[in-house]
């Protein structure tokens, strides 16, 4: 039986909690079962054995970026509705994980999120109030976040088994490269403005060049200087 609008809405809302039972064995498998449950109940209405099997399948190991999990929830529900066989479902789940994880990390975690954070930081350092800045960050960031979840859920249900081809059409690399470039510029600007705010800076003109040198060293030898950089902050507390 095809799920009604209310069931789709319930499943979509539940994807916000898809990582709620994250664990080292099934990753977000439990969350996938939780999100799929309202749809599976309807798809397998009157067939408790099929419902049991589909819930057990849904709860097995799975991983995805949380914002893109609605794609998986929509597509897996569609496959269950289309009565795809067990092997197809298993293969499909396996094939979907890597692109959903990689796309989310590149575009959302390394792109959209730092972009919104850094623009907010810049606004604060230019004099916008902290509460207003934080509220603006939440509003703008979540406009993108919710839009991605809505798009993903619709795409997953509409394309089902063909969702992989639709994902290939998304210009992930181009978008993530643009974000990387802009975020590097923003990060440099925010760091320079924060350093300029440190009291006593106006008395020491050598702080600027030293900071630039430290930034360069940090960029080119990242892991090697992390401990030293943290140690410098500890020492700064005592001087």
């Amino acid at each position: 039986m095809i799920p009604g609008r209310g069931r789709f809405l319930a499943a979509w809302v539940r994807t916000f909690a898809v990582q709620g039972s994250w664990n080292y064995r099934t990753l977000i498998g439990g969350g996938m079962a939780y999100a799929l449950a309202p749809l599976l109940e309807r798809i397998h209405a009157g067939d408790p054995v099929a419902l049991r099997k589909s819930l057990e399948r849904a709860a097995t190991e799975f991983n995805s970026h949380p914002y893109l999990s609605p794609i998986a929830v929509g597509a897996l529900a569609r496959l269950e509705y289309d009565r795809q066989d067990e092997e197809t479902l298993r293969r499909f789940r396996g094939a979907l994980q890597a692109p959903l994880g990689a796309m989310g990390d590149q575009v959302l975690w390394a792109g959209w999120r730092p972009f919104c954070v850094l623009v907010s930081g810049l606004l604060f350092l230019m004099g916008v109030g902290p509460v207003l800045t934080a509220a603006m960050f939440l509003l703008v960031y979540n406009a993108g976040h919710v839009a991605v979840r809505v798009w993903g859920f619709r795409l997953g249900w509409a394309r089902g088994l063909e969702v992989g081809a639709a994902l290939k059409a998304v210009p992930t690399k181009r978008v993530s490269r643009a974000f990387v470039f802009v975020n590097q510029v923003l990060m440099g600007a925010v760091a320079a403005l924060l350093i300029a705010r440190i009291s006593g800076l106006e008395q020491g003109g050598w702080i600027g060049p030293s900071a630039a040198a430290a930034g360069l060293v940090g960029y080119f030898v990242p892991r090697g200087v992390a401990g030293l950089a943290i140690a410098a902050l500890f020492v700064a507390c005592l001087l």
Binding site: M187, S210, R223, A226, L228, A229, A232, A236
Partner: peptide
Amino acid sequence: FSAVGLAALTGI
């Protein structure tokens, strides 16, 4: 020390 620590961490 604050400026150098922050700059290095920003670079990382």
